[in-house]
Amino acid sequence: MLKVIGGVKVFNKGTINEKVALRGVNLEMDKGEFITVIGSNGAGKSTLLNVIAGNLILDQGQVIVDDKDLTNKSDHQRANLISRVFQDPLQGTAASMTIAENLVLALKRGSRLGLGIGVKAARRKKFQEALSILNLGLEDRLDDKVGLLSGGQRQALTLIMATLQKPKVLLLDEHTAALDPKTAQNIIEITQKLVKRHELTTLMVTHDLDHAIELGTRTIMMNNGNIILDVKGEEREGMTIDDLLDKFTKVSGHRLTNDRILLAQ
């Protein structure tokens, strides 16, 4: 399904600010897998998602989805295969446009746009149906500007937009980090619901270790541009946060301290 082979990404190459963000990352993901990604700040998690989505192009290595080599395709050329939700709720939607108008663009993800009216009656129905699973009442607010919504509502809408046209891979980058705990929990539940309903292959970065082991089918940990831990199946079942941190210490040779992972516990 998704393969990253020998992925290397270097920022500011050849300058004193040179920073190797990915050091030959290999990741193979099966259809239907739900991977949670953890790692301290600067580990390269967002960079990994960025090279998969095409916001960044790999310096070395390959990105392959369903046997299609996407390595050198730009973000908008991959949009028919990959959808994405960012940390910042403002990033995933257009504030000056209505909920329905945003959803039209999501519905047409990766396909040709025409000169037909965007918000058509049949589509409104489809949008209402899709929004109703949120239980936020957004289905009755199709013509409200998205700028009127709260951060949590916007993130929920972004999730619906990301899944309205079923993507091959769904990328979530700390998509609850900017929300208050209660809203974050709500968004996590919505995420679970959507992943299950559409049987989505999902890669979710999170700073919340509880979420990391409770959600999904597999967990990887990144450190300094490498994937240093990859657990699934039996090994993963019954795992506690302490087990995870112990494993991290063993593999990386140092304890996780003073970073968001610990703070988030």
Binding site: D75, H76, Q77, A79, Q91, G92, A94, L105, M161
Partner: peptide
């Protein structure tokens, strides 16, 4: 929101 429309293809 340029990044958003790009991510939508």
């Amino acid at each position: 929101n340029k990044q958003m429309v790009r991510s939508l293809g």
